[in-house]
Design a protein around this nucleic acid. Sequence first.
DNA 1: CATCCGTGTGGGAACGATGTCACATCCCTT
DNA 2: AAGGGATGTGACATCGTTCCCACACGGATG
Lengths: 352, 352
Amino acid sequence: MTAERPFPCGRSGRPTIKDVAAAAGVSRSTVSRVLTGRGYAAHDVRERVLRAAAELGYVPDVAARLLKQQVSRSIGVLVSDLRNPFYAELAAGAGREARARGYTMVLTDTGLSAEIEDEAAEALVALRVAGVIVTPNSPAVSGYLGSRGVSVVEVDRQFAAGTTDGVVAGNRVGARAATAHLTGLGHRRIALVIDETEWTTGYERHQGYLEALHAADLKADPDLVVTAGWDVADARRRASDLLRRPDRPTAVFAANNVLAEGVWRAAGELGLRVPADVSLVAFDDAPWMSMVSPPVSTVEQDAFHLGVAAVRRLDARIELPEADSVTTVLGVRLLPRGSTAPPPPVLPPPPL
Amino acid sequence: MTAERPFPCGRSGRPTIKDVAAAAGVSRSTVSRVLTGRGYAAHDVRERVLRAAAELGYVPDVAARLLKQQVSRSIGVLVSDLRNPFYAELAAGAGREARARGYTMVLTDTGLSAEIEDEAAEALVALRVAGVIVTPNSPAVSGYLGSRGVSVVEVDRQFAAGTTDGVVAGNRVGARAATAHLTGLGHRRIALVIDETEWTTGYERHQGYLEALHAADLKADPDLVVTAGWDVADARRRASDLLRRPDRPTAVFAANNVLAEGVWRAAGELGLRVPADVSLVAFDDAPWMSMVSPPVSTVEQDAFHLGVAAVRRLDARIELPEADSVTTVLGVRLLPRGSTAPPPPVLPPPPL
DNA sequence: CATCCGTGTGGGAACGATGTCACATCCCTT
DNA sequence: AAGGGATGTGACATCGTTCCCACACGGATG
């Protein structure tokens, strides 16, 4: 970003390498050699070329360069929902690290839809991106990209472990810690509110929950595992149903920030006091969790760093496309705050 | 996304139009005509070509197409801070509308830095994007992009009104409504916590604040206008200083969601009750504002729709590059909630 | 004096897709 | 029977960049 004035050259108004060559009185080859730094160029010629380029505000066309070199410096990032602070953080981390490594980031919000994800993946293939980072909505996307020769890193969720690199948080460990925190406080009826229990993330968190119950010699009650959709409204409805049951749980583990928001809102609407009536522990540390009172105990995972680590992995994969696939597991941390306390000394009052 | 198997063709392993032509037994031109839908093609030839393309999983190279056609279907989006839910919403809205209009979105988080913004702008020029949407960090970026023949829409902030299209919220109206809400409740010492008052957004919000004070026959006290930086930590420090003054204001208008978070946290730390000790009204409706108790009164602006409207404007601008510039002002809405109440009946207790 | 190297430069062929243009059919009209 | 439209196809130039190659110097070596 050096020159200010518009400088009409060629038909599109943007100066090409040919214009720079003409202005400097040399050939295109020489300009290319100077600008890319590959090959000889006499000192004064170099000076002339650089000055001409700066004066014209010349910016090389990446499309033409890509076409010739067949190697792209941009990566695609596919996230499920930018409005969810978790994915926004992840995207921000990926963007920062991508920039630091000289990549341009093409970001698409797949809106939790496998169809949009497929289309976006095809668009990225068309762009000939060097690689893709994806929080997959379906198992298909990684396979498709892989078959088209695009390096892929699955992040947060992992459908293709063993075939594809992955960067995930310690979901099982975190869920176990959260649940153990509740059992340690004396809770025996602990509900799990979760979006799904079959894919990796949900599966792992469910397993962690079960493991902690088992470790505390508690029997897992399937009725206490509530599956909610992906938005706050649905989570709130499900949580509301759960908390209105006569045999209400004394504690709830909400498996992500959206679900936690639903549970929190539901508890508030029902007039339940946290943690006096019901304890709440969440997964993901969203900003609101430390602003409400009491603040919400949660398992913190560093979404920003998840994005950073994914770009690092992708960069390594691009360098060595044939290396064995690697799954990186990032640490998580239980942050006990005010929303968890021992259960009420007596059983909750019986329904009318 | 139709085929599954890898199909090595050419040196990069990705099938080109030439491979499709060979497979279908026709020339490249014919394949192009079939695939683009422009020009003649006999029925059976068309069938053969389409089948071959599908079997090979052929995806046209956008770089080559762009190079030939000189017209791009991607737009750049430059936002200040993806971790701020306001910008994340905005980006999500832009992404959705871009997709709906057949654009690929290249998104960069400029991290509130003019330097990163400049670099990102240059990268977008190199990509030959059709247009750029930017929440500008400096006045330079729009001029630079404009001079390079790239259509620009400034969103949220507007440095180049008159030269460049803009999409902004009704900042002045909103700020006036927020402040008038406080004067209407009887407040006479109303502080404004704001990031800056010189650029359009900050300037307008400051003006709206002043107008409302004037309309209520209150004198504006410059000591009550506190300038804070762009992060929560700084806002919290400044707010803390403000709220510890002996002549503490009875109400605070925080000019955006980050500042409001800082004020909220500061008030909590100082043990001030909201709204009994101090009323708070914010700008931007972040999720936490309706989760804390009391919920925070705020001026709601629809960030998602701001992004949508910006893409619409940009699309129109790309169609008609020479048309007069347009600034779209989106409506805002005051949401009175629990954080605002009449001031304490007596003056706040004097300091020790 | 011929050869050879090091240094510096320009010509021209790619890269993949598009689209113009010319050509080659076939059938129908005059 | 000759002309001419309609229909269908392929050759080729083009977009902006890179980079391999050829070449042109000057000076040093054999």
